[in-house]
Design a protein around this nucleic acid. Structure first.
Lengths: 192, 192
DNA sequence: AGTCTAATTGACCCCAAGGTCAAATATTAA
DNA sequence: TTAATATTTGACCTTGGGGTCAATTAGACT
């Protein structure tokens, strides 16, 4: 029944590994990097995840599922959903000065995997679309409640926000000026 | 003085290699891929370019220098610079259905090299900034001529365009619908 | 205690990657 | 013709990657 007990917590392992993948990209992260990070040996890791790819998938799933669940719930419960939504962007103004400026793992993955690994690309696409659908719902509800002025269709507004998100996660790696970044966000959020 | 003549044209070689880098990314493009593409052997290539990295740099330099020179000149000479500028974006609506949807090599490089190769990242940044400065000049001149309505500073408008560009080069890999893409472009270009 | 089970360890395998180099080759200058 | 020079060729080297596996170990159950 029960053999030797596991030495690691799977959720924690996935958090750490996906953080590394996020920072360095998929290909550039070696199994040895991962092993050092989680203090494990090859065999142990491969005993649970049959390949580097499966490990990445599991890590991304955990990260995005919990992250998007949390986001969705908090926007639903919020008394000021539009303010919260805008904060997602404004928070990046400070985040851009973090020691590692790694962008969004979904955008990064879409760039890295396009033309190389359809399955992993589509996984990132899946979560980006879920992100978008959360935005749509939030905007729709906001329009119904009249707390938003724009009469543009929520689908277009959210598409724009997703696109702006994708852009800024690249652009922030190029320009560090906080004021300029804030102005850019102001401009793009002026639609809502 | 003159020994055995070269069998290849350097400019052509660089075009072909950078096209491959563009399509597959830097790391994922192997020297063998490159050699097959240009019909050469290892030694020949390494006789001219001392490393894969130098080859990439030379290729990117050629591509961007000529591309941006052409863009700058055509915008300067144009009788309808703003229309031309907008066309840069609208042209992507059809480009997004090409067999390989590879985005912008500058954005791709910034994503791939951040945290991995500062020199290559900064090279991509350099050209992206030159792109931006061309946009600034175009917008500035358009404001002076009064062929543009927005009173927003050209620096902000061009930053927005660059950011939009970065975004759409990711987003287009996710959504293929032409109508939606056109609406998105309309929205973002409404500022100018 | 002894047995069963499942996780752990780390040496090992295989391969593909970037890069090197001595020998062969094609041209120009004398 | 011959010497000098520069390019080409492709076998070869080294390194580091993902992945495997037999032996070991730590608990649970009887």
């Amino acid at each position: 029944m029960a053999g030797r007990p596991r030495i690691f917590d799977q959720g924690e392992l996935l958090s750490k590994t996906i953080a590394l993948f996020w920072k360095n990209g998929y290909e550039a992260t070696t199994t040895n990097d991962l092993l050092k990070e989680v203090n494990l040996n090859k065999g142990s890791l491969y005993n649970v995840f049959k390949s580097k790819k499966e490990l990445f998938k599991a890590g991304l799933n955990q990260m995005e599922q919990t992250g998007l669940d949390r986001l969705e719930e908090s926007l639903e419960k919020s008394t000021q959903p539009i303010e919260d939504l805008k904060a997602l962007f404004y928070d990046m103004v400070d985040a851009s000065f973090d020691e590692d400026c790694k962008g969004c793992i979904l955008g990064n993955s879409i760039v890295e995997f396009t033309g190389k690994d359809d399955e992993l690309k589509e996984l990132a696409v899946l979560y980006l679309k879920r992100f978008e659908s959360i935005l749509i719902k939030t905007l729709q509800s906001a329009q119904e409640k009249g707390i938003i002025k724009s009469t543009l269709p929520p689908s277009l507004l959210s598409r724009h926000l997703i696109n702006f998100w994708n852009g800024i996660n690249v652009t922030r790696r190029v320009y560090a000026d906080k004021k300029e970044m804030k102005d850019l966000i102001d401009l793009n959020l002026s639609f809502i």
